[in-house]
């Protein structure tokens, strides 16, 4: 089945750009909520790039963004939604099939 966001090969067009894939991979591996700075450091992206890609993923319903405070310091946390996790898992599986066609068949 293909959706508006996925190609016939099972790749998800929203996740496919490397910075977004990197961000999704960090969030998928992390716990429920990952701090913005952790995602930025882990992916090696700039603040503005993380914001931009997080917003695109948020608009697709793949990521949830929450703002709050730790003490008096403002913090932002990112969370991969259930939909985002499903799409990310499917995307990685599709990548594996493309790289190693014999696997899982």
């Amino acid at each position: 089945m293909t959706t508006s966001g996925s190609s016939g090969r099972g790749l998800d067009a929203t996740i496919h750009p490397l910075p977004r894939l990197s961000l999704c991979a960090a969030l998928a591996a992390g716990p429920e909520w990952v701090e913005f700075a952790v995602a930025r450091d882990s992916t090696g992206l700039s603040d503005s790039a993380v914001s931009k890609h997080a917003r695109a993923l948020e608009e697709a319903g793949y990521v949830e963004v929450r703002k709050g405070f730790v003490g008096r310091r403002p913090r932002t946390w990112l969370h991969l939604t259930d939909l985002g996790r499903r799409r990310f898992t499917a995307h990685v599986a599709a990548l594996q099939r493309l790289v190693r066609p014999g696997d899982g068949e």
Partner: peptide
């Protein structure tokens, strides 16, 4: 193919980085 391999390597890199952080 290279692009897909690079993408998988990036996923792996993020897993290693997050595992180190969870330690």
């Amino acid at each position: 193919m290279d692009e897909h391999k690079r993408a998988l390597d990036e996923v792996e890199r993020q897993r290693v980085a997050m595992a180190a952080r969870i330690h």
